[in-house]
Simulated assay, not measured.
Amino acid sequence: MESKKAHLAVIAGCTFYGMNGLFINRIHDMAIYPIIFYRLLFGLLFLFIYIAARGRISDLKLKKKKGSLLLQGMLVVTCMLLYFTCLKITCVSIAILLQYTAPVYVMLASPLILNEKIGKGSIAALFLAIAGIFLIVKPEGDFSGIELTGTYMLGIVAGLLSGVVFAALIMNVKILKTEYSELAIMFWPMGIAFLLLSPYAFDVSPGNLYGNLEVLAVFGIVSIGFGEIFTVLGLANLKAQTGSLLALIEPVSGVFFDIAVLGIGLSSETLAGCALIMVSAMFISLKDSKKIKKSEKVFF
């Protein structure tokens, strides 16, 4: 279990992120950008309290690679905007499928940027995971008869770019880890994203904001708070390729939360897709844990 802590952290964090649909379903009369802003607000407050409670405020001191921190915050916002643009123009299925092509880009770029080697096992796990994602989203969306109009192509391009940005976000965590602690990596980019999205704070009436305040607070704590803590702790201590594959647990957990809480039906294709992703995650986790030396300690 000691050798699998980082793997379990990513899985736990992505499970918290997978609850997004539960909260979105309970928020009424608010546009998506104000929702993201207030989610960040409550999430950041929780993160700061968590860091202060651990007596680690000194970890937030800015050091070198401030540009990489700024880049991480910009990547977070850009990934959100591209994903929701694709979602608005196309559909949920295509948006998820395109964003979670990120492991492909990570596997192609990490040998050049992070000097990580590509193993045959990682390639096999990648194919299993991508096939699983396709099976999960295919039942919800009909990909036949799509008219590739200018507007629709804009949505497709936005979705593809969201996957590229998501991959860059994962790899940049590894770059930041050489200079900053995990606490700083999780706090500052979210703070930058919060500032960039602050103009949307007033795109909601006081009455609607008050009516949704409790759900927004819990949303921020669960998603940005617990989700960010576990995910960053895990990603910072894993190969970028491994972390990107384990992140595919998020759509799987989202499917099961939808079934358990929202009562959405489960098709055989969706079940098969979830199984493929779980097998892929288990394979890459067991494979990597054997390589971790006993002397290496994961930050927890």
Rank of each mutant, 00 (worst) to 15 (best):
L233V: 01
Q72T: 04
G121N: 14
E228T: 15
G132F: 07
Q72V: 02
I118C: 10
K177W: 00
S122G: 11
I133R: 02
S58D: 13
Y50H: 13
T78P: 01
M190S: 15
I96D: 02
L8E: 06
S205M: 05
A240Y: 08
V10W: 01
S223H: 11
T149F: 02
S267W: 02
L246E: 00
F166S: 07
I49W: 14
L245G: 03
I36E: 07
V222A: 06
A168M: 09
I292K: 13
E179Q: 09
M19W: 07
D59P: 10
I170W: 05
L160F: 14
G211P: 11
Q99M: 14
T178G: 08
N25S: 15
L246I: 03
E179R: 04
G145A: 04
K174F: 05
T270F: 04
P251F: 00
I130R: 06
K297P: 03
F23Q: 09
A53V: 10
V92G: 08
S3E: 15
Y180T: 05
T149M: 00
K138Y: 15
L195G: 07
E116Y: 09
K5A: 09
T78I: 04
V222T: 08
G121I: 13
H7E: 14
I264M: 12
E214D: 12
D59K: 13
T78W: 04
P103I: 02
G155H: 03
L62Q: 06
T101Q: 15
M153V: 15
M190I: 08
A236V: 03
D59H: 15
F127Q: 09
V137W: 01
V255Q: 00
H28A: 10
S289C: 11
I170R: 02
L209C: 07
T149W: 03
G55P: 14
S181V: 01
E250L: 10
Y200E: 08
G234K: 01
L271G: 10
A31W: 10
F84T: 04
L266H: 05
L154Q: 12
D142L: 00
G21E: 05
L98G: 00
G263S: 11
S244A: 15
